[in-house]
């Protein structure tokens, strides 16, 4: 009896883990999308599922660097969309991409402030002085993304274009972390994308920055070289680049892809 129980206890986890695989009947298209694209891509995925019988589209979202790392380590995927061209360039250089990436949308930075704008922020000029090096001047608690991540790189380009030296109290790893600090009121202002401000609704207010046009972020999309469904991947790309894709992305607050660069 004890022996039987023991055997059961040892085998049980195996059975449970094996059960997680699930059945795979039809075809599955796996799309990796930068976090800011997730909502729009879910919508487009549903459209593809609607028009293709037996096709399931899985959209996994995450930080662009994480997504590229996953592909590099062999995660099965068919389409990749990143939040900036630099990350996509890495994927291209690593030979992970099939064909040339194409820009689907653009995004600009905005200042997100808590509802009511308690610190009375009006623009970049309130956040740093051209003459002032970063110091302990914390009248306005500004949170930005770290320069290592796309939104942080964009923030640096923006600051350079505006001739302002930012002195943030924190450099976060993702837009979500920046927004979290603003929504909770810990920070007085955060630099995030226009689409992020729109996505959280009334939780923050967005302040449009005229200087933002100098630091436009491009979102490239591409099929992956190791795709198991290259034809379906191409169809998805066509959908994203087509009229419907444009419409969905525009509704989410993205700018038009603009001339190829």
């Amino acid at each position: 009896m004890t022996r039987a129980l023991l055997a059961l206890a040892l085998l049980l986890p195996v059975g449970l883990v094996a059960g997680c695989g699930g059945e795979e009947d039809g075809t599955t298209l796996r799309v990796l999308a930068a976090a800011s694209l997730a909502g729009s891509f879910e919508e487009l995925a549903e459209e593809l599922e609607r028009t293709h019988d037996g096709v399931e589209v899985q959209v996994s979202s995450g930080g662009s660097t994480d997504l590229v790392a996953q592909v590099r380590e062999g995660a099965p995927a068919d389409v990749l969309a990143t939040a900036d061209t630099a990350t996509m360039d890495v994927a291209v250089a690593d030979g992970l991409i099939d064909g040339a990436p194409r820009t689907i949308a653009t995004n600009v930075l905005q200042l997100a402030v808590p509802p009511g704008n308690p610190a009375g922020v009006t623009g970049l000029a309130d956040l740093g002085d051209p003459a002032d090096p970063p110091d302990l001047d914390r009248d306005v608690a500004l949170v930005v993304c770290a320069p290592e991540v796309p939104c942080g790189a964009a923030a640096q380009r923006l600051a350079r274009a505006a001739g302002v030296v930012l002195s943030p109290v924190s450099e976060e790893r993702s837009v979500t972390d920046v927004l979290g600090k603003v929504i909770s009121g810990e920070a007085d202002a955060g630099l995030v994308y226009a689409t992020d401000v729109r996505a959280v609704g009334d939780a923050v207010q967005g302040i449009v920055l005229p200087e933002a046009a100098e630091a436009v972020n491009r979102y490239p999309v591409a099929a992956l070289a190791d795709s198991a469904e290259p034809d379906l991947a191409r169809e998805f790309l066509d959908l994203v680049l087509g009229d419907l894709g444009r419409q969905v992305l525009r509704d989410a607050g993205f700018g038009p892809p603009g001339p190829p660069s």
Binding site: V143, A146, P168, V169, S170, E171, E172, R173, D177, G180, K181
Partner: peptide, 13 residues
């Protein structure tokens, strides 16, 4: 730490 304190070199990182 990242949720509560943030991330700044020499201070919270």
């Amino acid at each position: 730490t990242v949720t509560f304190a943030g991330s700044l070199e020499g201070v919270t990182r």
